[in-house]
Write a protein that binds this DNA or RNA. Structure first.
Lengths: 258, 258
DNA sequence: TAGTGGTCTAGACCACAAT
DNA sequence: TTGTGGTCTAGACCACTAC
């Protein structure tokens, strides 16, 4: 390394490689120089070469494959999960199913439902008391054979008990909005709260999230006139999915004042 | 290390420490064992101790401070940026300003406006031709002295040229919606497309994003009856901000059909 | 078999923060 | 001054992949 800068060697090498990726000298799928090549090219020890590549992995630009090498990762997410693109009509399927269909895939999922009691956090989101009865359903959504979305949903049994939709996936109707419609609970709003973070190890394993890629953790609640009727915790890879929200604004001649 | 498992030593140590963080033995702000303590406790070399801690940094659970030690990071974002919480009224300020005020801060920003021509990507988002004239404004939004949000917005000069709002920040009115209202372009929808990724080095530096924390990159476009009137690229730390979207559903007796 | 990355040892010197 | 993490050397053996 030229000792001209006091920037550490591995960061200078990372800068070099990053520049080549960003300016197109190295394209998606291209192999980076191997660790031994970097050692020779820059005259550094192996750990420095490794640190340089590791830096780019953390930035999500590079993926390492054991026994093969390090490769430039594709940049943009491939599927778009859209909330609110209703154009005047109520949604007939979930944002997930629509996104998979739009990408030419076939949406599939597994689920497990169980009656349980609300924790404090879930109770707050559903506007009920901790310990109240809820139906909890855990989902794994697949795109092909690969799980791409995890979800755990909760519905107050005070609303659904004794109705045909008490078991979310047992009846002929699927999707929260059509199901609630069928028992006269007309959903008026959905609120999604979105956090991005590094995946927990079990999430990374199930969703096969590459190193350096974060996940979206979404807390979604459906409301019927300000009454929460369902809430869910959703985890998806930010590598595979982009989120999109279409939010209409009230007209300027709105009757309500400040 | 007990050689009972074939799981590597540094991952076993990371598992130990992670469990202590998640079960509350180590709380937010607590110092982890130092690298030399880990070496002694587990009988490993320094690089293994470092790798263990580094693993938790990548997961966003731990922050290292040179000369001090490694510490458990706070978990939840502190401010909530809400889009769509209008309750029948048009927004009078940006989601950013509302979030900062809600957290008890005072929103401030710097900006630079310049007339330029649309790139292909921006032209597509604005429904104009590449090379058409646009007003580009770059913002840095502050919470106290710390920049917390970067934004670059584009408005077609075909819409604003010659009006009092041609310079976004020069007039008495601020905020895209009120400004466009004032020239008769009534915004009807906002679409936000959200990606999460590791920060670019310059973003990490300006926004002071800790290692292991991703950023949200939001592409936001305002529409007046399907005509795009402004689009912006927004980058914020996922550590500091949570995104929230309130999306109303059309009523079930909607007049429009499939 | 050869080349790749994954893990690990046993050192060294440096920069930074607290005392 | 002491202890912390940051960087680096010069090796070693292993697991995986492609040929």
């Amino acid at each position: 390394m030229t000792p001209a800068q006091n920037r550490s060697a591995y960061l200078q090498i990372a800068d070099d490689l990053r520049a080549q990726i960003l300016d197109g000298s190295l394209r998606e799928g291209d192999r980076l120089p191997s660790e031994s090549e970097l050692q020779a090219d820059y005259g550094v020890s192996r750990i420095v070469a490794r640190q340089a590549v590791e830096e780019l992995v953390k930035e999500g630009l590079v993926e390492k494959k054991q026994g093969q090498g390090s490769f430039v990762r594709p940049q943009a997410p491939s599927e778009k999960r859209i909330v609110g693109d209703f154009y005047g009509q109520r949604p007939a399927s979930s944002p997930f199913a629509s996104a998979v269909k739009a990408a030419g895939g076939r949406p599939e999922w597994e689920y497990t439902s169980r009656e349980t009691t609300a924790t404090l956090g879930i109770a707050e989101r559903l506007g009920i008391e901790a310990g109240d009865a809820v139906m909890r359903t855990t989902y794994r959504f697949f795109s092909g054979d690969q799980p791409v979305m995890l979800s755990t949903s909760y519905e107050p049994l005070a609303i659904t008990r004794g109705t045909p939709i008490q078991q979310p996936e047992a009846g002929p109707i699927t999707g929260v909005v059509p199901r609630m419609d069928s028992i006269g609970k007309f959903i008026t709003d959905v609120i999604e709260e979105v956090v991005a973070r590094a995946p927990r190890p079990h999430e990374a394993e199930i969703l096969r999230v590459p190193k350096g890629v974060p996940v979206f953790a979404i807390s979604r609640t459906y409301y019927a006139d300000d009454e929460p009727v369902e809430t869910a915790d959703i985890v998806i890879s930010a590598d595979r999915y982009e989120l999109a929200y279409r939010v209409p604004l009230p007209p300027p001649d709105s009757p309500t004042g400040p």
